[in-house]
Design a protein around this nucleic acid. Structure first.
Lengths: 333, 333
DNA sequence: CTGAAAGCGCTAACAG
DNA sequence: CTGTTAGCGCTTTCAG
């Protein structure tokens, strides 16, 4: 690999001039600059990012650490992050924490050791340890799930979304809605459960039916199974994410339960497949792309130092999309 | 951030000894080693990965550059890669080339500049330029789509899969199968089309109906629309990936065409939602997790230098999973 | 077995 | 405006 000194020799100037020319510094003789560029092109020179980062104490990549790469919600966020980061000249390195604190810690360490310019994280737990990032002075913005400490963040009004979903189920005529939510340590799981509980309580004398499970397909299947086996089984389900819903669908199918007749269902997240299952799935859509875009925007401002000192917390709203899975087909009973 | 010299001072030894102790070098006084570890822990020392990489001329992260992060096929591959990389002590940085040669080139450059230990790439085109990687001596293994030059690779028998899918459609009684495939520059698109064509030709006097479109939801929708608007419309569809299929479903719905009655359909890739749409989708499943795991395995061997000199090309097989979308419901016509 | 010292490739003072 | 030079933090000869 050609290095900067090779280019300097080829162009007949000093390494400093090469560095300045290639980094578009204001005061450099245009003729030299041309010679440098020509020499660099001829040798196929590429700056060594490692050396540059070591010297500058920062790089032009950011890390996006998400909870689950196979969840469409997070990949939609990814696109939002990428679009704005790219526009600012940053590359984004995606890290899949896989709903696992240990992996998350590993990637946080990698981010620190690789001196990324900033990180966007959906923390596995509110207690996730980001102290090293602070220590290394790496800007952080948190998405989807809150952290115990003050930090820039982009969240969504999960509780409200859950409440409106549950109310919608009740309005549609279902009488025993249950909630399948994520693990207890996940704040989003708690909020969505809270939304459900509030709706149910406001309605008066309704059982509070809910179960916690991993935010995964198998989690949804297990939870549905548990609920359906109970003495007082629900006649409608509010599911806290799309991955779980796939598992729920599996379980419903296994039991021969017909959605819209035997059971109603509505889920968080407007997965790409939601309109195409049978019957089409009603959902509480999160503005995933925007979450990513806004988070990246905040991060860019922090990196550039143009952000105000105080922490900024954005909270975006969900939108209820009623399709058919949550409707009750009276005539067909 | 504490640096190695701080630890050295704290432990009362030289930086060289700290380095050796922390990197488990064979010959270091156990007592010193303990003191070093204690000092490191006390100061919360973390080695600076950048500096280490600069000196060692390599790091312990690998880059996985995929074509589309929102395609479940690629996220499944990701899990395979992560599992084996992690087992070998490597972290994987995921890069979303987004079916875009420019973005791919950017990430290839980042990989080079960041001196990753190796890269796994699903090339956007056979002509993707990986010469800089070679120049920088960074091992590469290619997945899903071939490259013009010789390189370690893990592919799948796309042509055979496509052929069996098309034959299955024909066996099921459909008489005018068409193929919706990816863009012409994508080798996988070509292979799947070839498989379709072969099946159709073997069958004798059948029209060859196909259209190229982007490997995306909107691409599938557009292609379906085009095919369905033709004078000789198909009565069955073989679609080259799951993303496109979502678009096809959309278009079919818009036109009120009933799958299994008005039209048959089978797709590449066993997306998580495939069993749950109506009717359940027949698919040609690719061993995505294995592709990732095998590729990572090859890469690890190259990185360690334990791989044989010659290039290794693995080609995995698909499996046909017949559900209902490809079956013809005679009785219901 | 340990320490001193030489860089890895680059950028940023600083001096000219 | 340009060149010389001192590091960024770490690993690894090379002496001792």
């Amino acid at each position: 690999m050609a290095k900067i000194s090779d280019v300097a020799r080829e162009a007949g100037v000093s390494v400093a001039t090469v560095s300045r020319a290639l980094n578009d510094h204001p005061n450099v003789n245009p003729e030299y600059a041309d010679r440098v560029r020509a020499a660099a092109a001829k040798l196929g020179y590429r700056p060594n990012g490692i050396a540059r980062s070591l010297r500058r104490q920062s790089s032009d990549v950011i890390a996006l650490i998400i909870s689950d790469v196979s969840n469409p919600f997070f990949t939609a966020i990814t696109r939002g992050v990428e679009d704005v980061a790219q526009r600012s000249g940053y590359s984004v390195l995606l890290c899949n924490a896989d709903e696992d604190s240990a992996k998350e810690a590993t990637y946080l360490r990698v981010a620190e050791q690789e001196q990324v310019a900033g990180v966007i994280l959906s923390p596995h737990m509110a207690g996730s340890d980001v102290s090293r990032l602070r220590g290394a002075n790496i800007p952080l913005v948190v998405i989807d799930r809150p952290l115990n400490e003050p930090v820039d963040s982009v969240m969504v009004h999960s509780r409200e979304g859950a409440e409106s979903a549950t109310n919608h189920l009740l309005d549609a005529g279902w009488t025993r809605p249950a909630c399948i939510t994520g693990p207890e340590e996940a704040a989003t799981a708690q909020e969505r459960l809270q939304g459900y509980l509030e709706a149910v309580r406001q309605h008066g004398n309704l059982d509070e039916l809910f179960v916690h499970a991993p935010f995964r397909q198998h989690g949804g299947a297990r939870a549905a199974s548990e609920l359906l086996d109970a003495e007082v089984a629900p006649d409608a389900l509010f599911v806290a994410n799309a991955q779980m819903t796939l598992g729920v669908l599996d379980e419903l199918k296994r039991r021969g339960l017909r959605i819209g007749r035997d059971i109603g269902i509505i889920t968080f997240d407007d997965a790409p497949w939601a309109p195409f299952i049978s019957p089409p799935m009603s959902v509480v859509a999160q503005p995933a792309y925007d979450i990513g875009a806004q988070a990246a925007q905040l991060l860019m401002e922090r990196i550039r130092g143009t952000a105000p000192a105080e922490r900024r917390q954005l909270t975006l709203s969900t939108t209820l999309i009623v399709r058919e899975s949550s409707q009750r087909s009276w005539g067909m009973r």
